[in-house]
């Protein structure tokens, strides 16, 4: 029994970490600007393909793991500055429609460049083996992914709670007008915040490629669970997104083991239950980043 369930639990937690990562990126952007970035998954996919291309041109995986997210940040910030910024002051429906359109365009562009089917993108040999945990073999790649995602989340938390810039960001989420009347250029905050979201998406994209399979729809497939995770955790709560992500990942993989047919609906059931008990989500507060 244990040998059956344990791998599912671990795999579920890692899947959940990806959901959490995407959810946090979405929340960062939504909290500050009110933009629901439906193109978030497309940026994630872009990073995967960029890493794939870099590696196939001879770059090392490790270098691609850094460079692809950075390139994604550049592309993301250019799009934000040119297309999304003019919509910040409008009704959120405008940016929602824009980013939805962008995600459709991106998916087609990826199909044109990299083909409609998945491309093989595997991690270097050193991550290929497994580590024995006694009762099971645990793939090194998954362990590596777990460590990188966890480290990135710790860094993000330190940035938000231990730097002046993070402090400004948390204040601006509550009142952008006051923070600019106190001497902060709000446009710089918007840009850095969006870049942060892109960096998270980019990192997740490269890591997910080896695990979920790199295809034009890889990122978008993570988007819906990520929204569910954000809602379960409590919109805007960093900690909530992490807990929500792990819960959903766990629920999906364990359900797959016992009732495979229900593995897609389980997260919605979980969401419904959480919302019945706590309408603001597990860690949702009135303010954000509570």
């Amino acid at each position: 029994m244990l040998s059956n369930v344990a791998p599912s639990v671990f795999n579920g937690l890692i899947l959940g970490a990806f959901y959490a990562f995407v959810a946090i990126g979405l929340s960062l952007i939504m909290n500050l600007t009110g933009t629901i970035n439906l193109a978030h998954g497309s940026f994630l996919t872009l990073a995967g393909y960029l890493a794939f291309t870099l590696v196939s041109k001879g770059t090392s995986f490790w270098f691609a793991l850094i460079l692809a997210p950075l390139l994604t940040v550049v592309v993301g910030v250019v799009i934000e500055r040119l297309l999304i910024v003019p919509l910040y002051k409008r009704d959120p429906i405008f940016s929602l429609l824009l980013t939805f359109g962008l995600s459709l365009i991106a998916e087609e562009v990826y199909r044109l460049i990299w083909g409609p089917n998945g491309v093989p993108f595997s991690a270097p040999g050193i991550l290929g083996g497994g580590i024995s945990l006694g009762f099971m073999q645990f793939p090194t790649l998954r362990l590596f992914i777990a460590v990188v995602l966890a480290a990135a989340m710790v860094l993000l938390a330190l940035f938000l709670w231990r730097t002046r810039f993070g402090l400004r960001l948390r204040a601006a989420i509550q009142d952008t007008e006051m923070i600019s009347a106190m001497g902060t250029n709000i446009q710089v905050l918007y840009m850095v915040n969006f870049a942060l979201g892109m960096a998270l998406a980019g990192l997740a994209g490269v890591l997910a490629s080896g695990l979920l399979g790199l295809s034009p729809t890889m990122g978008n497939a993570l988007l819906m669970p990520a929204f569910v995770v954000a809602i379960i955790g409590g919109m805007g709560s960093l900690f909530g997104s992490i807990v929500g992500g792990l819960l959903v990942g766990l629920a999906i993989s364990v359900t797959t083991l016992f009732i495979p047919a229900a593995n897609e609906v389980i997260m919605y059931i979980l969401m419904a239950v959480v919302l019945l008990i706590r309408p603001r989500g597990l860690f949702g507060t009135e303010g954000l980043f509570g």
């Binding site: 402090l167 948390r170 204040a171 509550q174 009142d175 007008e177 006051m178 923070i179 600019s180 009347a181 106190m182 001497g183 902060t184 250029n185 709000i186 507060t285 009135e286 303010g287 954000l288 980043f289 509570g290």
Partner: peptide, 22 residues
């Protein structure tokens, strides 16, 4: 406003406008 503020203009707004979560 951020440039006006940096010149040395302080603002105590109506209704106080705290950053409640800070």
């Amino acid at each position: 406003s951020y440039r006006v503020s940096r010149l040395g203009v302080g603002y105590v707004p109506e209704g106080r406008r705290m950053f409640n979560e800070l």
